[in-house]
Write a protein that binds this DNA or RNA. Structure first.
Length: 590
DNA sequence: GCCGTTTTCGGCCCGACTGTTTTCAGTCG
């Protein structure tokens, strides 16, 4: 239910604020515990309430980051709708920590000072304090810090949040290319969330090794896309790009490249776990390498360098395999790495054909032939034409007769094209009652039947789930396209019980799609992992509406990798003939 | 307040940069 998702995010907020309150008063260690609990709540979503309903406090304590005290607070929240400890803190210190803390550079101590000295409670109060130049009168604040705060506040208000991977990747590639050309540079790469290929990117993290650090830093801060320089150091500089995203560059000696790359690839949670594990093995890990801990003569710990050249030797020295960047989220990937059971996730470049392509028969911009040529040029050997069906009247969706006509055109083109195969397909609409928008007779003539929801997005969860499963159960169906229908930053997506959808996909041997279009990324990584675990096949498509959209395929492969999918889990890593043989066999059994 | 390949008690990641300091606190990643 949507309400339970809301409550777990409310809990995340409550624990986040408790962490801040404790931090303000310099309470040791508790802040990290609450911070962890907060992240855990956000990540678990509905599972928190599900656990509570099933087993109360005892079950809650099984959740990561939740012990006796926090379990009791969660229990209290679900019973009474609030957490007294949090409410008491809020009474004593009535500040909108959640909003204020979103401003870059504004941490717990500053929020504390702003309130105790200037009675700033929220963003409005902060604006007034800034306008009257009172902020600079707080002890340890000055003109510069006041100006910086004003800048960051303005930026936060303008910024739409994080940026889509598909938008940032080309920019980062451009910067890397430019910096790599500078004399003396040996390595220049991006790390951070970009290297982990997360669906959204907070900022661009760059690492370079060079014989001439000054030269690279100068070049970096004067790149054409730089708007302002925020930091300019010998080993680290930070800039804001005109497109509204920050970029950080670290310059390190070539000898420690591997350690630095590991460190700044993150994510933070992964690194904390890894460093804690290193400590347990009497090592300490930082961006300069892995060090062995020793007791010095003065009783203090000191370290002798063990390894730092490559990421692999660091993980190996700790007795584990190297998790691919996409898996580094601070979940169970470290256990898997230790136990040498990391999956062989699908390599980039594995997709051989695109199974969702729109043409100018409906809302695509190009002819079937132009799309086929573009797909071939993008390195693919086949594609399925999957134009919309008649329920989508505003794009001129095809009816049964037009689908038959399109099939003849595809036959003609297949005779003409060399080394490329066009499959006859459809993106058939799922109607409100779960029936399909083309006749079974027509569907049976097609090589590839994709189905998707384009209407009635707001049905209640149970009804929406029933509707989609009804559609999946049609024996002609091969794949459910963009299953959740979300548009990142624009539309939430339909309310589906994904466990039931995955189970139905397994039962009816229907594949689920990873729609790689940057606005969609649907399925997302979490759902991909569920699908893989259930043994249900996936498909990576671009949902191409124009010839240059085939470039999105690596974005889809990235999602598959984040969801631990192997090549074997993904149907369109097969050759065209192997795929057709698979589909043929499936239909005969149906 | 959490957690266990070092532990059920005693630990809890760590270094760079900024701005305000005259030796360091705060924030970030």
């Amino acid at each position: 239910m949507k309400t339970s998702a809301k409550t777990s995010s409310e809990l995340a907020k409550i624990f986040f604020e408790i962490a801040y309150y404790d931090e303000m008063q310099s309470v040791p260690f508790k802040p990290r515990a609450y911070q962890l609990a907060s992240e855990s709540m956000a990540a678990l979503g509905n599972d928190v309430e599900a656990a509570w309903r099933k087993g109360g406090i005892r079950a809650l304590k099984e959740l990561p980051g939740v012990g006796q005290s926090i379990a009791e607070k969660i229990d209290e929240y679900f019973r009474t709708g609030k957490v007294k400890a949090h409410a008491d803190m809020k009474k004593k210190f009535p500040v909108d920590i959640w909003s204020l803390s979103r401003i870059e550079g504004l941490g717990p101590k500053h929020i504390h000072d702003l309130y105790t000295v200037l009675k700033v409670k929220d963003l409005g109060g902060l604006k007034k304090a800034l306008a009257s130049h009172k902020v600079r009168t707080i002890p340890r604040w000055g003109e510069k810090s006041e100006e910086k705060l004003a800048r960051e506040l303005g930026l936060m208000e303008r910024a739409s949040g994080r940026h889509l991977l598909g938008v940032i990747l080309p920019v980062a590639d451009d910067i890397v290319t430019k910096l790599s050309k500078i004399k003396g540079v040996k390595h220049c790469v991006y790390a951070g969330s970009l290297r982990r290929k997360q669906e959204t990117i907070g900022d661009i993290d760059l690492i370079a090794t060079t014989s001439d650090p000054e030269r690279v830093m100068d070049a970096f801060v004067s790149l054409p896309m730089v708007e302002t320089v925020q930091e300019r150091g010998k080993t680290r500089s930070s800039v804001r790009l005109t497109m509204g995203i920050d970029a950080d560059l670290r310059v390190v000696p070539d000898a420690v490249y591997g350690a630095t790359l590991q460190y700044f690839t993150g994510d933070k949670r992964h690194n904390v776990l890894l460093r804690e594990y290193a400590l347990s093995k009497h090592f300490t890990l930082n961006e300069y390498g892995l060090f062995r801990l020793k007791k010095g003569r003065d009783g203090h710990k000191s370290g002798a360098l063990v390894v730092c050249k490559t990421e692999e030797e660091i993980y190996r020295k700790l007795g584990m395999d190297t998790p691919p960047p996409e898996l580094r989220v601070g979940g169970d990937e470290l256990d898997a790495a230790r136990e040498h059971r990391l999956p062989k996730i699908v390599p980039y470049g594995s997709v051989r054909g695109d199974l969702q392509v729109q043409t100018n028969w409906t809302d695509g911009s190009a002819t079937i032939e132009k799309m086929a040529v573009a797909a071939k040029n993008a390195g693919l050997s086949y594609m399925a034409v999957t134009d919309h069906t008649k329920a989508l009247a505003f794009v001129g969706g095809l009816d049964d007769a037009k689908v038959a006509k399109q099939g003849k055109e595809i036959d003609r083109l297949n005779k003409k094209l060399r080394g490329f195969l066009i499959l006859k397909g459809t993106e058939c609409d799922i109607l409100k009652d779960g029936s399909l928008d083309l006749s079974d007779k027509t569907l049976a003539t097609l090589d590839w039947v994709g189905i998707s929801v384009h209407s009635h997005f707001n049905l209640p969860r149970a009804e929406q789930t029933r509707r989609v499963i009804q559609a999946i159960s049609n024996p002609n169906v091969d794949c459910l396209f963009h299953p959740t229908c979300r548009l990142i930053g624009k539309r939430e997506g339909i309310d589906l019980d994904m466990d039931e959808i995955v189970a139905a996909a397994k039962k009816y041997r229907v594949a689920l799609e990873i729609d790689a279009h940057p606005d969609r990324t649907d399925l997302r990584d979490l759902h991909v992992r569920m699908t893989v675990k259930a043994g249900v096949k996936l498909v990576i498509d671009t949902d191409a509406h124009a010839p240059d959209h085939f470039r999105f395929i690596p974005l889809g492969e990235a999602v598959a990798r984040r969801g631990w999918a192997t090549k074997n889990d993904i149907l369109n890593t097969k050759t065209a003939s192997a795929l057709l043989a698979y589909l043929d066999k499936k239909r005969k059994r149906a």
